[in-house]
Simulated scan of single mutants.
Amino acid sequence: MSTNPLFPFKFQFFGEYYHYHYIFETLSFIIGVRIYYYLKKGKLDPISDENRLWIMLGAMLGALIGSRFVAILETPSQLNHLTFLTLYQSKTIIGGLLGGLFGVELIKKIIGVNIASGDLYVTPIIIALIIGRIGCFSMGIDEPTYGLPTTFFVGMDLGDGIKRHPIMFYEILFLIALLMFFSFLKNKVMLNGDRFKLLMVLYFLFRFLIEFLKPYESLFLNLSSIHWSALFIFLYYYKFIKRIFKSTLTEKTKEYG
């Protein structure tokens, strides 16, 4: 029984109560897709519409598999009791992004596309994440996205009478800042694909750090599946991170030199 009447947010439909999270989850997908097509309109896309559809299919299938795979690894103690229902209900955006990335790369190899394809998805992904995270925040403690107990001034009672780090609220603020950051980079000359890589690195870095403010089960070396997913992304984009770091350092040297 919730001790805070605000959490979780629910609505009544035919005498039953449902979480608003399901509405926000659906809206995030619909609005994200609409924003993608709006931003794509009028732009010269080196990738054909047919290949774009194949790439989107690869992303969705990869996200479907990845989101569940990483999610079930978040609770390794439950692996021996895994059921189809548990597998279906388990999902995490980190796994979705990771699976989506490899789904896209696999499809691109199959259809012979060698051009980076992610930049067009940066803004739609961030906005979809913001909407989805509002839904997660509305769940309170009904979904395992809440934080550890805290005496910090931003601590909130998410439904169990304990002041906790509102992890989803932190993430919403981070995503809004990320949206503003990429808006600032809008007219900056960057290599094709670099915006998407930068999004992945920054978001996974945030999730790696914020994970320490959540109650989590260790998968290996006292790190969760989210931590290991982030470390994998850092290794995968190692050359990009090194190039961007050297480029930024060079620009700063020229600016102050």
Rank of each mutant, 00 (worst) to 15 (best):
27 L>D: 02
216 Y>Q: 14
245 F>H: 09
155 G>V: 01
77 S>F: 08
159 G>C: 03
26 T>M: 13
99 G>R: 00
89 Q>S: 11
174 F>K: 05
196 F>Y: 14
142 D>L: 05
77 S>K: 10
83 T>I: 09
67 S>V: 06
47 I>W: 08
246 K>M: 14
203 Y>A: 04
230 A>K: 10
169 F>R: 06
78 Q>I: 08
254 K>D: 14
254 K>T: 14
238 Y>C: 09
8 P>A: 09
33 V>D: 08
96 G>Q: 04
6 L>V: 13
38 Y>W: 13
250 T>V: 12
123 T>E: 02
46 P>E: 05
52 R>M: 12
121 Y>C: 08
63 A>M: 13
107 I>A: 13
8 P>F: 04
76 P>M: 04
145 T>E: 08
34 R>K: 14
171 E>N: 13
103 G>W: 06
136 C>Y: 03
99 G>M: 09
243 R>K: 10
68 R>D: 03
201 V>F: 05
113 V>N: 02
50 E>W: 10
75 T>R: 14
9 F>T: 10
127 I>H: 07
114 N>H: 13
191 L>F: 10
158 L>E: 04
122 V>T: 03
14 F>M: 15
76 P>I: 07
145 T>C: 05
80 N>M: 14
158 L>A: 06
103 G>I: 09
11 F>H: 01
253 T>Q: 15
198 L>I: 05
197 K>Y: 05
40 K>R: 14
205 L>G: 10
176 I>Q: 02
151 T>W: 06
247 S>R: 09
52 R>C: 05
65 I>G: 03
43 K>A: 08
221 L>K: 10
129 L>G: 00
224 S>F: 02
74 E>A: 11
199 L>N: 00
146 Y>K: 06
89 Q>H: 14
47 I>K: 12
202 L>M: 11
52 R>D: 08
123 T>Y: 07
87 L>H: 08
84 F>V: 14
208 F>Q: 07
197 K>E: 01
208 F>H: 09
190 M>L: 14
43 K>G: 05
18 Y>F: 15
9 F>P: 01
54 W>Q: 07
115 I>P: 00
50 E>K: 13
140 G>T: 03
87 L>R: 05
57 L>N: 08
128 A>G: 15
133 R>G: 11
140 G>H: 02
